[in-house]
């Protein structure tokens, strides 16, 4: 069953297609990875699904549970259960970690905050009194973002490079949260550059120059990380024309 359907989605910036006629089905309860080189359009796709400003004007459609969400503002999409873990999360002066985590949680209690922090591998005693401000390290901020999403219990989570800036010993918390989210029935879209993270997906999409180049079971998509990207001439020079060829060839 498709929770989300992306239909012939194209998005232009300065006259250039950043997303180029993308169609993707996101199955409910699965963990989907989106992989591809820098500048491929992965974050753009996530931002477009979330409906952030600057990503509202596109061709094609995005359906959630079979209904178009194209006209819905961010908060209404979020109240339907869609959320985004930002690649570079915002900093908030003076806003307490607990307040931030509870902002999106349906159940507002200290226990919810503690549970979420613990799942992100952060000690509640140490972090509950901190603010979500500039004084947090990049990895700490990222894990608080993870805790916030965990507390929200979303239907669909877009995770934009959840592991970037997180140390080797702590990525296990991210994997545990992904596992727990799926266990609870959430659907996850995982944007990543890491084969370790890819292992936690069932299924993956390979995007290059805004175009879907390949898709398939997670195990098959490792070739991309082994330097064996689908045969095409775009390496280091992703252009739409170059990327379209391999799909046609397949």
């Amino acid at each position: 069953m498709n929770l989300l359907e992306i239909k012939n989605l194209s998005l232009f910036k300065e006259g250039r297609p950043i997303l180029n006629n993308l169609s993707m089905d996101i199955w409910e309860g699965h963990v989907h990875a989106i992989i591809g080189p820098n500048g491929a359009g992965k974050s753009t796709l996530a931002n477009t699904i979330m409906g952030l400003s600057g990503y509202r004007d596109f061709e094609g459609d995005v359906l959630f549970e079979g209904k178009s969400i194209k006209a819905l503002p961010v908060d209404e999409r979020a109240r339907k259960g869609i959320t985004l873990l930002f690649q570079e999360p915002a900093r908030f002066e003076g806003l307490g970690v607990s307040q931030f985590i509870l902002a999106g949680a349906k159940e507002k209690s200290r226990a919810v905050v503690e549970d979420a922090l613990q799942h992100a591998g952060l000690s509640p005693e140490k972090y509950m009194r901190r603010a979500v401000d500039k004084t947090l390290s990049g990895g700490e901020r990222k894990r608080i973002e993870l805790a916030s999403i965990y507390a929200m219990k979303p239907r669909l989570v877009l995770m934009d490079e959840p592991d970037s800036g997180v140390d080797i010993d702590s990525v296990k918390y991210i994997f545990a949260v992904i596992k727990e989210l799926r266990h609870r029935g959430s659907t996850v879209i995982l944007i990543t550059h890491s084969p370790e993270v890819l292992k936690h997906a069932d299924h993956a999409f390979l995007i290059c120059a805004g175009t879907l180049v390949d898709k398939g079971e997670m195990s098959r998509m490792f070739d991309y990380f082994n330097g064996k990207c689908v045969p095409c001439v775009h390496v280091g020079q992703p252009t739409v024309d170059a990327a379209v060829q391999p799909l046609a060839a397949n």
Partner: peptide, 12 residues
């Protein structure tokens, strides 16, 4: 706007 959109994306 980034702060705002973060909180909007949590349903506020």
């Amino acid at each position: 706007s980034k702060q705002l959109e973060t909180l909007l994306s949590r349903g506020l």
